[in-house]
């Protein structure tokens, strides 16, 4: 999912870079209002975990692998604004220190994974939570399904970028179909890992899950 330099032309990369910077700035402003002493180390831990988990590519089809993006995972654990910043930090560290994801493409990658993946995925999560009962199981399921969908959304964002400024002249329809197909499979992995981690944190420290709805305690009688 990390776009290298060269796939998308410079003007398009710059345009999405500006959009990504706007999203980051807004996320910083929002985070400034809610960051307390407890959430500073938690957000750092989530960033470290997302970095670690993104290293573990899993096979999805013959000759193809995928790895966690972690946008919905971070957004559910520390809230959408800090979640978007967590993904941005991971992408900057990967691009600058590990030569993973291009530098002129950094804005594209932040747009696709931090803005679309974390913020767009979080909106999907909130939509699902509104429809489901307010139970722990339903919350974990909503996180997993939204995480899967977020991978498809990020893949679609790439297709949009390729449509505007893609190099190499590949046919847009086949690029879109191929991106959608392979990322539907990767999305299943994303959903399972997200549900596993959110479920584990929910059972250990539900109070630390920023975006968990208040669980309704059924009345006994």
């Amino acid at each position: 999912m990390h776009i290298p330099d060269g796939f998308i032309n410079i003007p398009t990369s710059a345009g999405f870079g500006v959009a990504a910077a706007g999203g980051i700035w807004y996320s910083i402003r929002q985070s400034a209002r809610l960051l307390d002493d407890r959430r500073v180390p938690l957000a750092g831990l989530v960033a470290a975990f997302v970095f670690a988990a993104q290293m573990v590519n899993f096979p999805v089809a013959a000759g193809t692998s995928g790895h966690l993006i972690g946008g919905v995972l971070a957004a559910v654990l520390v809230g959408p604004w800090l979640g978007a910043l967590v993904l941005t930090i991971v992408l900057v560290v990967q691009g600058v220190f590990f030569a993973d994801g291009g530098l002129s493409a950094l804005g594209l990658n932040v747009f696709n994974m931090a803005i679309v993946g974390a913020l767009g995925g979080y909106l999907t999560y909130r939509g699902l939570v509104a429809l489901l009962p307010k139970t722990r199981t339903a919350t974990v399921a909503a996180a997993g399904v939204a995480a899967g969908i977020s991978v498809l959304l990020a893949a679609l964002a790439f297709v949009l970028e390729y449509a505007i400024g893609g190099e190499g002249g590949a046919a847009l329809g086949t690029v879109a179909a191929a991106m959608g197909g392979v990322h539907a499979l990767i999305g299943i992995g994303e959903g399972l890992i997200t549900a596993l981690v959110v479920g584990a944190v929910m059972s250990a420290r539900p109070d630390l899950v920023a975006a968990a709805p208040k669980v309704e305690v059924p009345a006994h009688g």
Binding site: M1, H2, N57, S65, H67, E167, G168, M179, V182
Partner: peptide, 20 residues
């Protein structure tokens, strides 16, 4: 971890724009 190309790399190879 799997060392195979990831989803985007695979698509770029199959669709012929990996050389860019």
């Amino acid at each position: 971890a799997s060392g195979e190309p990831d989803g985007l790399e695979r698509v770029s190879i199959d669709e012929g724009f990996d050389e860019t």
